[in-house]
Simulated scan of single mutants.
Amino acid sequence: MSICSRRGQLIEGGAMTDGAEAVGPLVVCAGQVVADLFVPPLAALPEAGELVTTGDMLSGVGGCSANTAVALASFGVRTLLSVVVGADAAGDWVRAHLAAKGLDVSGVVTSDRLATSQTVILPVTGQDRRYLHAVGANAEYSAAHAAAVAAGARVLVIGGFLSLPGLTTPDVAALLAQARAAGTRTVLDVVIPHGTRDAAERLAPVLPHVDCFTPNDDEARLLTGETDPHRQAATLLDWGAASVVITRGPDGAVYADREQVVAVRPLPVAVVDGSGAGDAFTAGLVFGLVHDWPVERRLRFAAAAGASVTRALGTTTSLFSRDEAIAALDDVPLLEMKDT
């Protein structure tokens, strides 16, 4: 399937087909980047003073915005990443790693004050993951950084809202409103730090400017007070989002807009590490938006992409290629599809 850029050049899977130079990014992913250290799954956390040996640890680039951008680039979509790193070895490595993945890193800004954000991921078999996180240079990221590179993008994806102190509600609302007025579709993801008490109040003014809001079920529960995904989605639609996708881990995902509800089960895979699954899912949704796919196809592609990264340690290590994800579409079970 082809779409036209703003200058009428044909794009197939994000690549120019007429030999002309690319106009600019098809998608801008903005917000959060992290230098990650993944520990292999542990039988149990060590006791005080105890030494536990593991398999090889994995260093990788993570953060919801970077993960989504890497996945989109791997699917062949021209993608620019807008983030802040430190003036340190980790920042240099992050920039080089992302460029090698095919991303446009011209939106990667260097802080002269804060170090590159880092996270240690501690998975324990049979339990949810634990994280040790240093916010670092992510604290300096603002809507102005995204606005500086978003012009002309087909889709703008904001990741990590509510966890990045520089992304304030008025500024994000204004950014997304301006983007939509220019014809850019807007996608918003959130990260809600433990103990946050004003998440709903900060989010609600932004949602009327969001084409697709993508919380997980825990985040949706914290925001709405509802436990049922359909009621969660209904509440978020009432707050103004044009559509909502609630990811539910092993229970799949629920999409809702004002006309329809579609739910899918996950693609069956042997799970090793769930890190990055939601971000790959978001990339799959955005890929479908770029290609104007119907909702059911978007969800199935997203579910295939999200499941694929859980097969190995890291956020993108085992990510399906575009063709692999398309081939897996029919293996993603459709749970529900109805008009509202």
Score class of each variant (00 low, 15 high):
143 A>N: 09
216 N>E: 07
199 A>K: 02
180 R>A: 02
170 P>Q: 00
118 Q>P: 15
225 G>F: 03
158 I>W: 04
232 Q>I: 13
181 A>V: 09
140 E>Q: 13
195 G>N: 05
231 R>E: 04
190 V>A: 02
169 T>F: 01
160 G>S: 09
196 T>L: 12
166 G>Q: 00
217 D>Q: 14
230 H>M: 04
169 T>Y: 00
177 A>V: 08
156 L>G: 03
115 A>I: 15
166 G>H: 07
119 T>K: 13
223 L>Q: 07
121 I>Y: 05
128 D>Q: 12
190 V>R: 09
203 L>P: 13
126 G>C: 12
116 T>W: 14
195 G>H: 09
234 A>M: 08
221 R>L: 00
145 H>D: 08
146 A>V: 02
197 R>C: 06
160 G>H: 08
133 H>M: 06
196 T>Q: 08
186 T>I: 04
233 A>V: 15
227 T>H: 03
147 A>L: 05
224 T>L: 03
198 D>C: 10
170 P>K: 02
193 P>C: 06
228 D>E: 05
199 A>M: 05
129 R>G: 10
159 G>I: 08
224 T>I: 06
159 G>H: 04
160 G>C: 05
138 N>P: 08
172 V>F: 01
126 G>K: 10
223 L>R: 09
155 V>E: 00
155 V>Y: 04
113 R>N: 12
154 R>E: 04
229 P>S: 04
156 L>E: 03
143 A>W: 11
124 V>H: 13
185 R>M: 11
121 I>L: 14
174 A>R: 15
116 T>M: 13
206 V>S: 00
234 A>P: 12
175 L>T: 08
202 R>A: 04
157 V>H: 13
180 R>P: 07
124 V>P: 15
210 V>H: 09
231 R>C: 02
173 A>D: 03
175 L>N: 06
222 L>K: 04
231 R>D: 07
114 L>P: 05
193 P>M: 05
157 V>D: 01
212 C>H: 08
207 L>V: 04
225 G>P: 11
199 A>L: 07
229 P>K: 12
161 F>C: 06
162 L>R: 12
215 P>C: 11
192 I>P: 14
162 L>M: 10
115 A>V: 15
232 Q>T: 10
190 V>F: 03
211 D>L: 02
185 R>P: 01
203 L>N: 06
163 S>W: 10
220 A>R: 11
205 P>G: 00
154 R>C: 01
114 L>E: 13
122 L>Y: 15
208 P>D: 00
171 D>E: 12
124 V>N: 14
205 P>Q: 00
143 A>R: 11
195 G>V: 09
225 G>D: 02
118 Q>H: 15
163 S>D: 07
129 R>P: 15
156 L>Q: 04
195 G>E: 02
160 G>I: 01
215 P>G: 09
173 A>N: 05
210 V>W: 07
170 P>V: 05
224 T>W: 10
178 Q>L: 02
126 G>N: 09
151 A>S: 11
160 G>F: 03
153 A>W: 02
212 C>A: 10
140 E>D: 12
208 P>A: 01
210 V>I: 06
136 G>L: 11
169 T>C: 01
127 Q>T: 11
229 P>I: 00
204 A>N: 01
168 T>H: 01
162 L>E: 05
177 A>D: 12
192 I>T: 11
119 T>M: 14
136 G>I: 12
162 L>F: 13
145 H>F: 11
159 G>P: 07
137 A>H: 15
121 I>V: 15
227 T>E: 07
126 G>T: 08
163 S>C: 10
177 A>G: 14
